[in-house]
Write a protein that binds this DNA or RNA. Sequence first.
DNA 1: TACAAAAGTGGTACCGGTTCCAATCCGGGT
DNA 2: ACCCGGATTGGAACCGGTACCACTTTTGTA
Lengths: 344, 344
Amino acid sequence: MKKAPTIRDVAAAAGVSVSVVSRVLNEGSVAVATREKVVAAIAELGFRPRAAARELNGANLTIGLVLADLTNPFFARLADRIVWEARGRGVQVVLMTTQEDPHIEAETLATLLDRSVGGVIATPTGGNIDKWSRLQDLGVDLVFVDRSIAALENTDVVSIHNEASAASATEHLIGLGHRRIAVISGPLTTSTGTARIAGYESALAAAGIPSDAALIRGVPFRGDAGADAVAALLALPLAERPTGLIVANTAQVQSSMRQLYQMGIDIPRELSVIVFDDNPWTELVSPPLSVIRQPIDMLARHSVDLVLGRMQGRLPVGPRFIEVQAEFVSRSSSAAPNPVESHV
Amino acid sequence: MKKAPTIRDVAAAAGVSVSVVSRVLNEGSVAVATREKVVAAIAELGFRPRAAARELNGANLTIGLVLADLTNPFFARLADRIVWEARGRGVQVVLMTTQEDPHIEAETLATLLDRSVGGVIATPTGGNIDKWSRLQDLGVDLVFVDRSIAALENTDVVSIHNEASAASATEHLIGLGHRRIAVISGPLTTSTGTARIAGYESALAAAGIPSDAALIRGVPFRGDAGADAVAALLALPLAERPTGLIVANTAQVQSSMRQLYQMGIDIPRELSVIVFDDNPWTELVSPPLSVIRQPIDMLARHSVDLVLGRMQGRLPVGPRFIEVQAEFVSRSSSAAPNPVESHV
DNA sequence: TACAAAAGTGGTACCGGTTCCAATCCGGGT
DNA sequence: ACCCGGATTGGAACCGGTACCACTTTTGTA
């Protein structure tokens, strides 16, 4: 277990001072001949500057990624792309998960501070407003992705155009002839929850369809809340029962679908279904699901660009809100409602 | 943007020297009364020691996690559990992905060194043998999870019992009456590829069934290799065509299944299918898939235990090979072969 | 040719912890 | 009352870089 060479070893080998080596490392002004000697010495010794020493001086090449849960394929793919984008820019990613628990989130934030990360990309649970803003006070650049917190109005946000996406899914069902359309989404305390339900309601309003509170289910992300919501919706009296369903959050798709299968619901004859986020398996189930496809690579790219841009101070002050377009992909799980069925 | 308190601030506030504060932080011997003063000062100032400063002294509370690809739900869930286990032990995780590319993997290893991580949990691509062992020479504790590299015989490995798992899937199909069973797995250069195919072959041998090279497909993890393999298998002359298929690697399941659906294969009537790794969606597709379920939480727990145990030097020398049991879950995608069909 | 400005280089004090070592304090044994 | 050893505590070097500042060497210009 030999030890790695330090900057002084390099300086000695190249016959210069440590200052010069440091300048070579950080593109300071160094004579060409000198630089070559140093570069040669670095190569020969296989020297690599230690991140810890650099960070001690404020420099920073690490960002924190705070996600709810890697079990959710949406977050998993987001993480994959973010790590990828960061790598391309020479930045490392420290990954943390909150499991949607504000308490764990708080702990996570504290840890991020010790690690003196320069920036953070996060999907906030919704709580810990004071902690998030303290993080910012301490000079850590923060970018919310997917979700946001309204009270933190000075924070950059990257997300899909939630309202429009939910609206277009709703319009699609209305266009097929559906009048009773249910929506399952995140809690109304989350930005995605409110925005998507707002989009849903505005589409209904535009079509002159009254909205019915019984058809709107803002449920928790974790656990079987999706399944329970589905069961409740289908337990409604026949006349009030929805003929269309939008599952507006990836986290609830799985348990909702499982419940539908267990109940033996015939899709789309009895119920048309549209779900948020296109996973590899949405086209493997039967029938293949109509989905709102989120451009995950765009979300990742913009998040990383933003947070690094802030860290390098090359972005104007004032928050940036980047909304990218999501795409509606029509497959076989949505069709015109069955008029006979709905009156039996 | 105020700055965080340092250990000297705490020392001043508590009226002691920095040494004492440091000792309080690291469970050194300090008088009870003094310790209380220091603890109070820490709490009051909200002091948290900076990780970078600690790491500069060799201490280390970070592990690197090198995975192939978070798009694969097996790895995503593994990452989720590993981050979780690490968090419970006060350790952070730096995440990196190789996308199965040895070149990227090499770059990743170099980065891990700069970051002076104390330990690494990895799913190696199979190459970079020299780089991995240099990492170990430099004192970084290394644990391979899921896969291993035979040449690195001194490295800890945590995985499922690959051979037995593949054998039990094969036996299940043999028990149903299948004689021509195909297997799609990773390249034979990977440990999982060879072990699983070995298990498959030993099960065949035990049943007195000759193994047929045409039915064994060791294909790359990424891309549509699974789909191509399926197409090739089903293009065989009828008498040589398999009636059973084991997709022995999570990475190939998706494209294999997609291909089967596209070709309109009737499962299990025309072909019985067993796939490795139980995802949430395996029971949502039709028919629900028979799977080998890997105990991901066990893999995560053991990996983290091992790497931290090494880092803290409280493990005997000599490599540890931990193999956990995987579970065969029978669902509707496997059934007795259709004798009529196979002779038409 | 002389002198000012610019470019390149070396010295060294940090950054915020850890750790070794010497100094101090304490009570018990004789 | 005096000496000795264990328990605490403080001082300062050190980890491996960065960055400010002073000094020397070029280069450019009058």
